[in-house]
């Protein structure tokens, strides 16, 4: 049972981390608490669903389609809503409220277009029969989720360290004003980060939709709160931190539900968060973040 619980923790932690990767990028680089992030999860899943059902695409093509569509939607939303605020040097919190309005707008529109009911990807897109490996029962989609998270983290590291856009993104994250002076195209970086983070969130949406067979307009919302906790504990903009904190939260939740009491699952996660913040006010990895560097 312990082996299975550890595996459950790995899967849940990976789902958390997957959601947090793009979130930490947009929060850390663009310095924006973007509540629309939860919407991109559903947008990606719905776009992939439409691709499978109406365009007749296969799973991988549909997935890519969903990811690109969500990325483009994010670039447009960012340009329409957040860029004007950036230009006006508006207070940080105004971006939070503008995305709050944005979420209301987009979720309601999505419900009008797609309806309120829960949908699912057609059965048998991916084998759903679990296989037994030693003491473990494992479903194929779970392996896909775990693999995706680790591949994405590796790719993100490579991208941030080795590509020009990645370097530019890091420069903007550290010193937005200096970066602009040094000739970094800030507009391009902003668009790039918006696209990337929404694409990551859409990946999470599609995989979660496949894993739990449920796609609906509000599927991203319940993940937002845990997402906040993860990226703050992990450090804003810290990819490795998001992975570690996501896995840690998954572990904590599964172990609490499995061995203590499922009643306390949610409370334990947040009690740990509060204690963690109290003991390490600057996040797990001690990086100073937020306004005061």
């Amino acid at each position: 049972m312990l082996a299975q619980q550890l595996f459950n923790a790995l899967v849940l932690g990976s789902v958390h981390a997957l959601f947090a990767l793009g979130f930490t990028l947009t929060f850390g680089v663009l310095r924006v608490i973007n509540l629309l992030y939860g919407f991109y999860v559903a947008a990606g899943a719905f776009a992939a669903l439409v691709a499978v059902q109406s365009l007749g695409l296969g799973l991988w093509a549909a997935g890519a389609f969903g990811v690109v569509v969500a990325g483009l939607v994010a670039v447009v939303c960012d340009f329409l809503v957040l860029t004007p605020l950036r230009r006006a040097k508006a207070p940080e919190l105004s971006s939070l409220i503008v995305t709050l309005g944005g979420v209301l707008l987009m979720n309601s529109l999505m419900q009008i277009v797609f309806g309120a009911e829960v949908r699912r990807f057609p059965a048998r897109l991916l084998g759903q029969d679990a296989v037994t490996i030693g003491p473990l029962v494992v479903a194929p989609i779970q392996l896909v989720i775990i693999a995706t998270v680790f591949v994405l983290v590796a790719l993100l590291f490579w991208f941030m360290e080795r590509t020009r856009l990645g370097t530019a993104i890091r420069a903007v994250a550290e010193r937005p004003d200096t970066a602009a002076l040094m000739g970094v195209n800030v507009g391009l970086v902003v668009a790039g980060v918006s696209f990337l983070s929404a694409a990551l969130s859409a990946t999470a949406g599609i995989l979660i939709g496949l894993n739990f067979n449920a796609v609906h307009p509000y599927m991203g919302e319940p993940m937002m709160l845990r997402g906040f906790a993860i990226i703050i504990i992990g450090g804003l903009g810290d990819i490795r931190g998001a992975l570690v904190a996501g896995l840690a939260l998954g572990f904590l939740e599964v172990m609490t539900a499995g061995y203590v009491s499922s009643n306390l699952k949610e409370a334990v996660a947040f009690t740990a968060l509060i204690l963690g913040l109290w003991l390490r006010p600057n996040g797990l990895f001690g990086r100073a973040s937020g306004k005061r560097a």
Binding site: L85, A90, P91, L100, G101, L104, L105, S108, I112
Partner: peptide, 18 residues
Amino acid sequence: RLVFNGLIIVLVVIFLPR
């Protein structure tokens, strides 16, 4: 209803960010 509600919030913040 909520579409317009969201839209109004967005517009107010964009035009009156403070």
